[in-house]
């Protein structure tokens, strides 16, 4: 399954993206997304940056501090691989 980690926001609004193929079932992915889904903030963090996980056609806001131990390395690698997406370029 192909997944994309997308980072948006920040002091200057920059979008970064990294993608990888992972061996995971739909059901396992559903459980993972439930665990790491980010709650909306109130009030919003000023200049904050945000992560989304793109799975299929859905983009789910995620909180990387909630990533379970067995997926830590995967997300560390994805974060390290984040590259700036130039304005106007499709994700």
């Amino acid at each position: 399954m192909k997944i994309k980690l997308i980072r948006t926001g920040g002091f200057i609004p920059v979008t970064k993206m990294a993608e990888t193929e992972i061996n995971i079932t739909d059901s396992e992915m559903g459980i993972l997304l439930k665990v790491i889904r980010a709650e909306p903030e109130s009030p919003r963090i000023k200049d904050g940056s945000y992560y989304e996980l793109a799975v299929g056609s859905a983009n789910i806001p995620v909180d990387l501090n909630k990533v379970p131990a067995e997926y830590q390395q995967l997300f560390i690698k994805l974060k390290e691989d984040l590259k700036i997406i130039k304005a106007g370029k499709a994700l």
Binding site: G9, G10, F11, V14, P43, I45, K46, D47, G48, S49, K79, E80
Partner: peptide
Amino acid sequence: DKGMDNAYWDG
């Protein structure tokens, strides 16, 4: 964070 290119105020 590692290599974080940002600064913010969290309230």
